[in-house]
């Protein structure tokens, strides 16, 4: 299993390395500066990703899935809602792509002077951004669980959600819009998707007459919509203060 995971990580990275190598050799035709540091970084990425996913499959996924199924079967709505919020919040906070993008966002913001040019200010900004996205995915899952229980129409909710996104876009400061749209895409990744899908499928199958495929999907759709709204609001708050 470990070996298979290593090959998986290599396969993730290989196309990038190949494309860049082709461009370097045939089009740019110059030696890549700091090749050693880059190779070192690539090696760490492969090693880190392998260990990370291996650990997830060993620990987080079995517990999370068992919890999601058990709570969905138990049918206690308050606990289910609490769990949905914490699950969305917790998995998003640990999402590697979000950590990476939020620290880049902090660098850009401090270079532009919207926050102070210190490590502390950058760390706080990145953390605040991650907490905002975490809360938004938590709220998204609560809404998604509510939808599954109450059997609300998914397309109507999604279209209403995008209408809100469009409206807020015109009120939000221009510099947050790109980050907001990106964060919606970043959240649905390695850690969040398997656990959220487990929650959706567990819930849909315990309610009987629901289709697990479309209901599990509804949760993910909310999880990529809500961060856009929340991060734009975050941007407005930062701009005012």
């Amino acid at each position: 299993m470990f070996w298979r995971q290593t090959m998986g990580s290599v396969r993730d990275l290989l196309p990038i390395v190949l494309v860049i190598a082709v461009f370097q050799v045939f089009i740019l035709q110059r030696p890549l500066a700091e090749l050693f540091a880059l190779a070192e970084g690539a090696l760490l990425v492969v090693l880190g990703l392998t260990l990370f996913i291996y650990g997830l499959e060993l620990a987080l996924f079995p517990i999370g899935e068992a919890l999601a199924y058990a709570l969905a079967r138990k049918g206690s709505v308050p606990w289910l809602v609490t769990f949905a919020f914490l699950l969305g919040f917790g998995t998003t906070i640990a999402e590697p792509a979000l950590i990476a993008v939020s620290s880049e966002a902090a660098n850009v913001a401090s270079a532009a002077g919207s926050i102070a040019d210190t490590d502390l200010a950058r760390e706080n900004y990145a953390l605040a951004l991650r907490l905002t996205v975490g809360c938004s995915v938590g709220v998204a899952l609560v809404l998604g669980v509510g939808r599954i229980i109450m059997d609300w129409s998914l397309p109507k909710l999604i279209i209403a959600g995008y209408a809100i996104v469009v409206l807020i876009t015109f009120a939000a400061p221009a510099e947050i819009i790109g980050i907001a749209y990106d964060s919606g895409a970043v959240t649905t990744s390695t850690v969040t998707v398997p656990l959220v899908t487990a929650l959706g499928i567990g819930l849909a199958s315990s309610l009987g007459d629901r289709n697990p495929m479309t209901d599990g999907f509804g949760l993910i759709a909310f999880a990529s919509l809500m961060p856009i709204v929340f991060v734009m609001c975050f941007g407005m708050v930062v701009a005012w203060s």
Binding site: A37, G41, A42, L44, G48, L51, F52, G55, A94, P96
Partner: peptide
């Protein structure tokens, strides 16, 4: 450990 190494690798490599 994996996440720590991955993020460091991002900073150094990707």
């Amino acid at each position: 450990i994996g996440l720590g190494l991955f993020l460091l690798g991002l900073e150094l490599g990707l």
